[in-house]
Design a protein around this nucleic acid. Structure first.
Length: 113
DNA sequence: ATCCTGACTTGAC
DNA sequence: GGTCAAGCCAGGA
């Protein structure tokens, strides 16, 4: 039986992502940095992969890479859903990239501390 | 136990 | 300023 402690990494990631305010976005690196290892940004994205079908639903569409590019949109179903969700929250997305990314950027290290 | 993969990031050329 | 390669942690085969 895998306890929460065994998946604390994923739970941490999910928890942070779920705390992302509507209309805001963040990057894998920031989440990873908040967890303690900015180098493990890959783990964050990988956790998102497992977040597919997890409840409560994880707003993975609010998580993009540090360039504000919707790198993970291809993992959505359909991929366009990610961009639509962002636009629905008031975020402009052109060519799979977020406009004014820094403006919508939400830093967990500064908000959650 | 070993090797490979993965929704990233940063540094170097 | 764009492209290539290396680093990183954790899980699956």
């Amino acid at each position: 039986m895998k306890s929460s402690l065994d998946y604390r990494f994923f739970e941490n990631v999910f928890d942070v992502v779920r705390q992302i305010p509507k209309g805001k976005v963040t990057s894998y690196g920031l989440i990873a940095a908040y967890l303690g290892s900015k180098q493990s940004s890959r783990m964050v994205g990988w956790a998102m992969n497992k977040a597919h079908g997890v409840q409560p639903m994880v707003p993975a569409h609010r998580v993009v890479n540090r360039n504000g590019l919707l790198t993970g949109k291809h993992h959505f179903s359909p991929p366009e859903a990610m961009q639509e969700a962002l636009e629905k929250e008031g975020i402009q997305v052109i060519d799979d990239k977020i406009i004014d990314f820094e403006t919508h950027l939400w830093n967990p290290s500064e908000t959650l501390l």
